[in-house]
Design a protein around this nucleic acid. Structure first.
Lengths: 251, 251
DNA sequence: AGCCACCTGTAAACACTGTTAACTCGGTCC
DNA sequence: GGACCGAGTTAACAGTGTTTACAGGTGGCT
């Protein structure tokens, strides 16, 4: 008797359920299957009703991307939770492995968030400041970078010569270091100022390039030959990555 | 008077024109704009007529992918032609830079060929042998690998310990080395057998991971911060890449 | 010549798609 | 009671991939 129709429940619940169904269709049948009518059918309503909640299919997909990033962040946070708090290397490894595991388990979502050319879909303009934001992706990046911050606080890295950092990049790197320091400090991690020199920031960039390249190639099956068991390939890249930054001890 | 209707021209011409228009739509308006009706409109025919040439839209897109790979190959070959024949390092650099230039100039095509999760779209089963082929992509890969072959023939590389190659990967690497040797020999490049040990093959894999990662991140704008001028970032990766394989001399 | 098969195209239709407009129903507030 | 508003409906439009049945020209065969 207390059956609650959709009208009774708070609006946010329906919004969430819409995105959930959209994601289910995305995961199970690919991007093209994310159809307003299919979503509405799952909710027991009609397609035009969705326009009460989202401006368009594109708008809906944008919100779905945000949800995906939040979930990815939660998954990685859970992974980190299983690692000893003071094991900075283990934390970084957990994030890297977790990112790969998630990407392989959710190739469609990975493609949508990390391999779609439509740039505007991932940026939102903050009305008050006018600055471009990528709200949810930053939430994922933050986890990655927090782990890096912990690592920096705990270990002395093998730094390349700061002269090797290309001149034209210093401006960007300095700006990025600023956001990094703010973020790390906000997380309560003590970090000596000079531990985050430009070489370190530059190294993190290289780190991300290789992690992303490896994962994307695996998801898209674009290695130059058939890899029967990609896991040791990934693990070997991880150890080499740690090796390159002067941490040869970790397994 | 000699106006040739579509009926007169050889079938292959129409097939090619269809794919050309499909690509034009892809480049100019994105994947979703590649519509059978839009293609037919450009050719002055109706949509169902396209089914005389392709089984479905998916089938057409598959052939378009092949065309794209052929064109990419031609572009890179032209790049190589501008380099001194005996400058192996220059050749590798030309291929890497050409790949980046092409990807940035044709993001939609890059996404379709190198960042699409639909794996079956890129494989064709050879009827006689039953082996899986990726016909056109191999044409691109061949250029990349030929340059690597030349490099190997001309320089002594800095090899990592062969023990570092993960055990589970040796089978794949050995198989890949086989196709590599066949390919290089077919091109008439003399290569001492032991120059292509597993470490070298493994190194080429790492090379590809970093090149792909860098280019894809740039195309998709997924660097962790805004890069105002990505070119020096790419160039610095290239020099570091050459540095890592023991070729610090090249500019 | 006649005929028949084939090839290439068409028009019509079907079941979809995103999106808009007009309308209805239920609840809330004055 | 009446005005308003939010959430949903139906109907419609233009556009999509795809199938079916049909038309007209071409070439080869008897």
């Amino acid at each position: 008797m207390t059956e609650t129709t959709r009208r009774d429940r708070p609006r946010a619940d329906t919004e969430r359920e819409i995105r959930q169904q959209a994601r289910r269709l995305l995961v199970e049948q690919g991007r093209e299957a994310v159809t307003l009518r299919a979503i509405a059918r799952e909710l027991g309503i009609t397609a035009p009703a969705l326009y009460r909640y989202y401006d368009s299919r594109e708008d809906l997909l944008r919100r779905v991307i945000d949800d995906i990033c939040v979930d990815l962040g939660a998954e990685l946070t859970a992974d980190i939770g299983q690692i000893d708090e003071h094991d900075a290397v283990g934390g970084v490894l957990a994030v890297c492995r977790g990112f790969r595991r998630w990407a392989l388990a959710h190739p469609q979502e990975f493609t949508l968030v990390f391999a779609s050319p439509d740039d505007s879909a991932h940026c939102v303009v903050d009305d008050s400041t006018g600055k471009m934001l990528r709200p949810a992706k930053d939430q994922f990046g933050r986890i990655f970078l927090n782990m890096a911050g912990k690592l920096l606080a705990a270990h002395e890295l093998l730094l390349p010569d700061e002269e090797h950092v290309p001149e034209e990049l210093r401006g960007d790197l300095i700006a990025f270091r600023g956001t990094l320091l703010a973020q790390i400090k906000q997380e309560g991690i003590e970090l000596p100022e000079q531990a985050l020199n430009l070489s370190v920031v530059y190294l993190m960039l290289q780190f991300w390039v290789r992690l992303y390249g490896q994962v994307a190639l695996e998801v898209f099956g674009r290695f130059p030959f058939a890899v029967t068991n990609p896991e040791p390939l990934f693990e070997s890249m991880l150890t080499q990555l740690l090796d390159d930054i002067g941490l040869a001890d970790a397994a």
